[in-house]
Structures are given as structure tokens and as C-alpha cells.
């Protein structure tokens, strides 16, 4: 058993990225933006591999809490993509999302979080190219901003999360 553990640990050590790379949480609407991301993939478009995507039924499903949670867990950036205004599958979900998320973006600096760390845009199912561009632009912006020291840095010491969940990040 100990042999096996050693091997896994060694592998993990080897797989650790040598250079710091920002991680983006992407929350994408099922009907437009997720299909747009899919199109980017099937069109073999190149975009930075920094984004982890969660599919939601509608941008109106995005609770501002999700974005706070992502920052609390240490994501360097959060991205929400939805259907263009007027194109929502549920007619008006993205209009409600727009109010909440515009407010959230304005609020982030009050917490000391750069507004650039949160991006919110409309991407339709046919806009695979725009999806790839959005990811590339945001990755570049986050690389320029540098690592995110988290929401709980007190006098230079980051609080260590002891949650089992947190360790599995």
C-alpha cells in the first residue's frame, strides 16, 4: 500500500503545473453559450485551457452566491455567459440575470476584488469564435492581474480551509 501511495504522490508532484495559471469558473447557459462553447470545440478553435465550465439551464439561474463561492474557494476569475437580450429560451431569464450581475460587478470593488475578475457577456450558439475570444481575453487579463490572494488574508497569512471539500479542489 505504501508503495502505491508513494507512486501516486510522486505522480501528483510531477503533474503540478510549473508555472502559475489562472483558473476561471465559467457558468454557461445551456441554450446559447454552452452550445457556443461546443461549437468552438467542434470547430477546433484554440483557446486557453484555463476555464472550468458549469452548465446551467439559463443565466437567470445564476445566483450571485455562486460567484461569491467561487472567489471564496480561490478561483482567480468567474465568467457568466448567457443568451443575448431578447433571445432567452425562457423569454426573460437573462434580463433578470443582467440586473443582478451588473450590480454584483459594481459591488466587487467594495470587497476589494478587482471587477476584471468577474466577466459577464452574451454569447449565442453560433458564436463559437466569440466564446474562444472571451476565454483568451479573460485569461490574459487574469494573468496580468496575477494570483488572487483570496478573501481571508489577514496580515499576510491566508486562512487554511480545513473542510474536506476544500482539500479536494
Amino acid at each position: 500500500m505504501s508503495e502505491e501511495t508513494t507512486t501516486i504522490e510522486q505522480q501528483t508532484e510531477e503533474q503540478k503545473p510549473k508555472v502559475w495559471k489562472p483558473r476561471i469558473l465559467g457558468i454557461l447557459c445551456n441554450w446559447c453559450s454552452y452550445a457556443g462553447a461546443d461549437l468552438a470545440g467542434s470547430s477546433r478553435l484554440q483557446y486557453p485551457p484555463n476555464v472550468r465550465i458549469i452548465r446551467v439551464p439559463c443565466s437567470g439561474r445564476v445566483n450571485p452566491q455562486y460567484i461569491f463561492k467561487a472567489f471564496q474557494r480561490g478561483f482567480e476569475g468567474v465568467l457568466v455567459l448567457g443568451c443575448h437580450p431578447g433571445d432567452c429560451h425562457y423569454a426573460k431569464g437573462n434580463y433578470y440575470a443582467r440586473r443582478r450581475l451588473m450590480l454584483l460587478k459594481k459591488f466587487l470593488p467594495s470587497l476589494g476584488i478587482e471587477p476584471e475578475r468577474f466577466h459577464f457577456e452574451w454569447v449565442s450558439a453560433s458564436e463559437g469564435i466569440i466564446f474562444a475570444e472571451v476565454i483568451a481575453k479573460m485569461t490574459k487579463k487574469l494573468e496580468d492581474l496575477g494570483p488572487f490572494s483570496g478573501v481571508s488574508v489577514v496580515q499576510g497569512v491566508t486562512q487554511i480551509n480545513t473542510d474536506a471539500e476544500d482539500e479536494h479542489r
Binding site: K92, Y95, Y96, R99, L101, M102, H119, E121
Partner: peptide
């Protein structure tokens, strides 16, 4: 309630740099 409603003319991310 302010977040329980909207207008099509609300501030948009495209006008405010996303």
C-alpha cells in the same frame, strides 16, 4: 422589488465593458 423586475433598457455589460 428592484431585482424582481427589469426593463429592456437596463444597463448592459456591452456598454460597460462586460
Amino acid at each position: 422589488p428592484v431585482l424582481g423586475t427589469f426593463t429592456p433598457e437596463d444597463p448592459d455589460p456591452n456598454e460597460h465593458g462586460g
